[in-house]
Design a binder for these strands. Structure first.
Length: 155
DNA sequence: GCCAACGTTGGC
DNA sequence: GCCAACGTTGGC
């Protein structure tokens, strides 16, 4: 079982939106590295749900992969903002996985706090210039963040 | 809203 | 295959 981190702008799709649905296709990923990570995902893998461009930006909770990768239909929909005219229906460029809500943290763990934790310095998330919307997370990092989510009052 | 970092595109 | 121009991400 592997661990991941998936970013979303809460104004577009938040952890509360995810909670309100049985599951959700993670559409709109248009970056090859991020897509490749989704292709590696297995049913049952766990992921942190990260709120980007938010106040504060940070990890909002946990979700789980419930369906392994398959083509993202929005790439063929001319009305979608994710439409990709260069993608060949015979050989789709973009894939997605379905994820399901697991839990919401009592408070978002702010990026700022993650950055100050010595155990989390190797996370892709805190590396300078890292914009990838999907990144792998190690088991140690996962456990550390879960631990942080159970304490409160990050000053 | 700014801008640094990064990815993609396309001319040559 | 190089690289300038352009677009996007996302913290601040």
């Amino acid at each position: 079982m592997a661990y991941w981190l998936m970013k979303s702008e809460p104004e577009a799709f938040s952890i509360d939106d995810l909670k309100a649905r049985p599951s959700e296709p993670w559409d709109g990923v248009r970056n090859y590295q991020a897509r490749n990570f989704m292709k590696e995902m297995k049913k049952g893998d766990m992921a942190f749900f990260y709120h980007s461009n938010s106040k504060p930006s940070g990890i909002a909770g946990i979700c789980k992969v419930v369906k392994e990768s398959y083509p993202d239909h929005t790439q063929f929909d001319p009305k979608s903002k994710y439409y990709d005219p260069k993608s060949d229906p015979e050989n789709p460029r973009w894939e997605l996985v379905d994820v399901k809500f697991v839990k919401k943290f009592k408070e978002v763990i702010p990026l700022q706090v993650i950055k100050t934790n010595p155990k989390l310095q190797d996370m892709k998330l805190v590396q300078k210039g890292s914009r990838l919307s999907i990144t792998p997370v190690s088991k140690t990092e996962w456990n550390e963040i879960e631990k942080m989510s159970k304490s409160s009052g990050y000053a």
